[in-house]
């Protein structure tokens, strides 16, 4: 299986084809509903984001608390479509990759194509299994959101499928 080291670059993104299974390694951010809302509100007011969005990959996840001695608890993807209304704005701000589960709407597909990005899916509900591929966790923004705070994760050989590629090819039927 193809291995990809993060951050993503243009050449890598262009090489990824919808349907392809790959293993991701490197640093990513987490972000769900409330973090997306805050990111977009900040961008609309021309405020500085608390994270670097350029060339970033965001994983839609709210993990369970880590047990002592472990970096993270269960950590599978949440439903991506809830983030659809915020995603084009983040892609415009430099976001290059997303990891989640389930289909995206046409606006997101168009924005992925326009900004040369990629949408990955991993197996929804496989929280225990996927946690084994996450090596560290650090809260970096919106701590008050608890399970929804923005965290930096170090992932290793994290198994994903390319669901929407930079040409706009989509593995889900709309």
């Amino acid at each position: 299986m193809k291995k990809i080291n993060l951050p993503l670059n243009e050449k890598t993104i262009e090489s990824l084809q919808a349907g392809e299974e790959v293993l991701l390694s490197g640093k990513i951010l987490t972000g769900r509903d409330q973090a997306h809302l805050r990111f977009v509100q900040a961008l609309e007011k021309d405020q500085k984001l608390p994270v670097i969005m350029e060339n970033q990959v965001i994983y839609y996840v709210g993990p369970t608390p880590a047990k002592p001695g472990q970096p993270i608890g269960s950590a599978g993807p949440t439903t991506s479509s809830r983030m659809d209304k915020f995603t084009p704005k983040l892609l415009e701000a430099g976001l290059r990759g997303m990891i989640g589960k389930g289909p995206r709407n046409q606006q997101v597909i168009d924005a992925i194509k326009q900004y040369k990005a990629v949408y990955f899916v991993c197996v929804g509900g496989a929280g225990a299994y996927l946690s084994k591929r996450i090596k560290s966790l650090k809260v970096i923004a919106y701590d008050d959101l608890g399970p929804e705070s923005v965290k930096e994760l170090m992932i290793e050989d994290f198994p994903v499928t390319v669901a929407i590629d930079s040409q706009g090819n989509n593995i889900f039927r709309l």
Partner: peptide
């Protein structure tokens, strides 16, 4: 495999508990 890990390692099957 996820179900086995969750049971054997006493952890949540899914992060959405």
């Amino acid at each position: 495999e996820n179900a086995n890990i969750a049971k054997n390692e006493s952890m949540a099957y899914c992060q959405d508990t």
